[in-house]
Structures are given as structure tokens and as C-alpha cells.
Design a protein around this nucleic acid. Structure first.
Length: 414
RNA sequence: GGACAGAUGGGUGAGCGGUUGAAACCGCACGCCUGGAACGCGUGUGUAGGGAAACUUACCGAGGGUUCGAAUCCCUCUCUGUCCGCCA
């Protein structure tokens, strides 16, 4: 959540910054007005409350049925009505303020470039050269069916389209990848955590999925519960409404969970194969840090994910996202894209973001720094989407005869 | 799912409808004591908002209600514990 004080104290700067994320200046001006109106009502309310509190103390001193007491009663009855009115006004103005505030994305870090979409992202680094094929490389869905790893029809039969049954060596490879990734992350200092994959609206609000992106989530009927779209939600919210002791920071966690996404609005994109599914495993990294440490830890998380691809021998590149391509909660995001020979291009396989205090303000995650409680910084990153890694291995390690070689490092996990 | 019990500050735990934002103890911080420490003694120590400050408002699981005044009374909900049921 945006700090509403920013609108009051440095309005122009904030407007300029949020232009990167396509937030209009009008909207922010409106937000500032709402903030000031609400503040005014609050002040009036507090004054009336102070009056009521103060005068109520006199009741113990005044004689029963005295004229003074009766007058006071009348006076306070009036004041009470006034309080009720003002309470209403404060509440209404607050609802209006929050409704708008909750839909404003995070401000971006200064080094985030302007831009509209993925074409304006900035290449940071290429790692490993794509292999040269002496035959026409097949798409993973073709390889998957030929090798009897991927069964799309049965997946659709069991649930619907965008669900897939993974079988045989494909299934074992998926599990091997998960184990390999978790071990790798532990070497980078991330403690393994096992979290619920169902979560409530409060947690989803905390990390920014709600209220704006409800249509992307699978909701449990009749309950305030949703399937998680990423374990970022449950990992980060482990600490919601808590004050963390500073010597526990940074907290670095990793988890594997299935993730569930409705993919509303993704239209016909990636309809073939397992690139875009309603359910997929993802190994996640989450860090909770001191304010001054988050930039460094972002770099380490990017390195953690990138080196994992290097170990797997998969060519990839790091892209600094432009404002227009960034997510709602992010202050700075670096995507890692893996080479897919069949598409002859790089596709997102990991996204690592520093959200600054945006999620911490929503989820109320703080740490004690001496006498002060400060909002923590939270970061998250896919330490690779498992399904997409499987895709990348299939395509990059395919042989002329249609078989798939197993990356050396995974052999001990099979 | 059924029955009962409970929810108070960093922790344990008192709280009568009005000097209780909250006793006491523990913890923590600082000071004194000491060569240094322990012990002991003293002082301080919740969160959030507003304000330059003085100060002020809200918060005792959450939300409502009664009252001039609610941690305290009433209602609803949530969670936790115990017992029963059901189970991986």
C-alpha cells in the first residue's frame, strides 16, 4: 500500500514516479483530497470525543438530580449525537480513501526504466549460449506426448483445459527438479518451509492480490478461503501483524507448493502445452529484511535463481522490467527468461521482486529497531516455476531421435 | 460436526461500570553498587493516528449494542484449549 503521507508531503514526486506505472495524476489528486477530507473529519471527531471524556468525569462530583447535572446530561446527549454523525463521516471518508488507495500500485525504484510493455525491458545479462540444433527442434508438448510424459486429454478430462497429467519419467523429473531446487536454495541460506496452499482474504490483501485481482483466484465456495496463486502469499503473511526482533533479520525462506491461477484474461495465449496452467508447482523464495538491506538481497535472490539455471545448463537472460511491465506490488523486478528453441525466444521462468514496504504496510509486518518499530521490506522470487523448467529441459535437451537427455546435475535426484 | 472453557501489554497474570492505558511478577533498557560480574537498589519500558510541542484520540480477540462514562454488562462472529465423534 502506498504511504498516503507521500501524497501530502511530496505530491509531485509521487505523481512523477507513478507515471511509470501508468497511474494518472488526476487519480492521485483525488486520492490526496480524500486523504485531507478524512483527516479533517478525524480531527473534529477527536475534539468531540475529548469533550465527552472530559465532561463525563464530572458525574462523580456533582450531586444527584442537581440542576447542573441535568444540564450536563442534556449537553452530553447533544454532543453524543455529534460524535455519532462525525463517526459516520470519518467512516465513509475512510472507506472512500481506502477503496482507492488499495488499488494504487507500488511506487518504483529510481533505477526502474520508463516503458509500456515487455519490449521496453532492459537486458542486464545473457548467460550460456543457446545450443545450435542440426534438426528442427520440437515444441515441448510434442515431445511430451511422444515420450508419454504429458497427457493433456486426461488432464482436461479430470478437471478442464489447462490441467495436465504428467507421467513416467516426466513426473519423476518434476519431483527431481523440486528436490534439486530446494537443496540449491538452502545452500543460498533459504530455510525450507511448508505452508498452507489455501489462504484467507486477509493474507491475500497483505501481499496485494486482493482486492484488485480477485478474478484471477480460485475461491472456495462459501468460505473466506482461496487457493494460493503463489506461496509468496502464505510465506510472506507468516509474519503479518507481527513485530520481528531485528536480530532475526533477514528472514529467508523457500517453499514448494502447487499454485492455482484462473488465468482470466490470458485469452488464447500459450494454450498448448504446460507453459500456462491453472495448476503448477513453483519453488518460491521470500525474504523479509531491514529497509536498508532489501536492495542487496534482491541481487542475491536473482543470483540464486540464475545460478540454478546455469547448473541445469539452461541458457537464460536477466531482464530489468520497465514500469509498464511490472506487477502491482513491485518496486523493482528482474525477470529471468529461459531459452526455448521451439519458439526461438526467451520466455519468463522466474520473476524476482523487491516490494519495499508496500506489502509490509498492508500486512503490518514490522521489526523493532532500537526504540522504533519500522516497516519491514519484503521480497519474493520464483526460484523457478517447476513446470516451465521442465519445458525448458525438454526442449533444450531434446535429441534428434526425439528422446530427451537428463541434465547431469539431476541424475542423482532421479 | 457436538459439548464445555477461555481470549488483557514482549511473557505470566490481576482487574469493582468512573482517578485503569491497565496492578503484580518476569523479561528488557539505563543508572547506582563492583576491580569486573552476579546479587541488590533506583528509574524507565505497549501499539497506531494527529500535533513543532504541550497534549490529544483510538485500541484489553473482532464487530455491534446499553450508558453521561465499558477491559468490566448484553448480542454476534472468529480463534484457542479440553472432552466426544470422524479420520491421513
Amino acid at each position: 500500500m502506498l504511504d498516503p503521507k507521500l501524497l501530502n508531503k511530496s505530491f509531485d514526486e509521487t505523481v512523477a514516479n507513478l507515471q511509470k506505472k501508468k497511474v494518472s495524476a488526476d487519480l492521485l489528486a483525488q486520492l490526496k483530497d480524500l486523504y485531507l477530507v478524512n483527516k479533517g473529519f478525524k480531527l473534529d471527531l477527536e475534539t468531540a470525543q475529548a469533550y465527552q471524556n472530559d465532561k463525563s468525569k464530572l458525574f462523580q462530583k456533582l450531586a444527584k438530580n442537581s440542576e447542573e447535572l441535568n444540564n450536563l446530561k442534556l449537553d452530553l446527549a447533544n454532543n453524543k449525537n455529534k460524535i455519532a454523525e462525525l463517526t459516520e463521516k470519518v467512516r465513509d471518508s475512510e472507506i472512500n480513501l481506502e477503496k482507492l488507495l488499495h488499488t494504487i500500485p507500488n511506487i518504483t525504484s529510481n533505477d526502474v526504466p520508463f516503458g509500456n510493455d515487455e519490449n521496453d525491458n532492459v537486458l542486464l545479462e545473457n548467460i550460456l549460449e543457446p545450443r545450435i540444433f542440426h534438426f528442427e527442434p520440437k515444441a515441448h508438448y510434442e515431445l511430451g506426448e511422444n515420450n508419454n510424459w504429458l497427457d493433456f486429454e486426461r488432464g482436461a478430462k479430470l478437471a478442464k483445459s489447462r490441467f495436465t497429467v504428467i507421467k513416467g519419467l516426466g513426473a519423476r523429473l518434476e519431483r527431481a527438479l523440486i528436490n534439486f531446487m530446494l537443496d540449491h536454495n538452502r545452500e543460498y541460506g533459504f530455510d525450507e518451509v511448508s505452508v498452507p496452499i489455501i489462504t484467507n482474504s486477509k493474507s491475500l490483501f497483505g501481499t496485494g492480490q486482493l482486492p484488485k485481482f480477485e478474478e484471477d483466484l480460485f475461491k472456495i465456495e462459501g468460505e473466506d478461503l482461496y487457493l494460493i496463486p503463489t506461496s509468496e502469499v502464505t510465506l510472506t503473511n507468516i509474519f503479518n501483524d507481527e513485530i520481528i526482533n531485528i536480530d532475526q533479520l533477514p528472514i529467508k525462506m523457500t517453499a514448494v507448493t502447487p499454485c492455482f491461477r484462473k488465468e482470466a484474461g490470458s485469452g488464447g495465449r500459450d494454450i498448448r502445452g504446460i507453459i500456462r496452467q491453472h495448476q503448477f508447482y513453483k519453488v518460491e523464495l521470500v525474504a523479509i529484511t531491514k529497509q536498508e538491506d532489501s536492495d542487496d538481497i534482491l541481487e542475491k535472490m536473482i543470483e540464486c535463481s540464475s545460478s540454478m539455471l546455469t547448473k541445469l545448463g539452461l541458457p537464460h537472460r536477466k531482464m530489468l522490467l520497465c514500469g509498464g511491465d511490472m506487477g502491482f506490488s513491485a518496486r523493482k523486478t528482474v525477470d529471468i527468461e529461459v531459452w526455448l528453441p521451439s519458439q526461438n525466444k526467451y520466455r519468463e521462468i522466474s520473476s524476482v521482486s523487491n516490494t519495499g514496504d508496500f506489502q509490509a504496510r498492508r500486512a503490518n509486518i514490522r521489526y523493532r529497531d532500537g526504540k522504533n518499530n519500522k516497516l519491514a521490506h519484503t521480497l519474493n522470487g520464483s526460484s523457478l516455476a517447476v513446470g516451465r523448467t521442465l519445458v525448458a529441459i525438454m526442449e533444450n535437451y531434446q535429441q534428434a531421435d526425439g528422446s530427451i537427455e537428463i541434465p547431469e546435475i539431476l541424475k542423482k535426484y532421479l
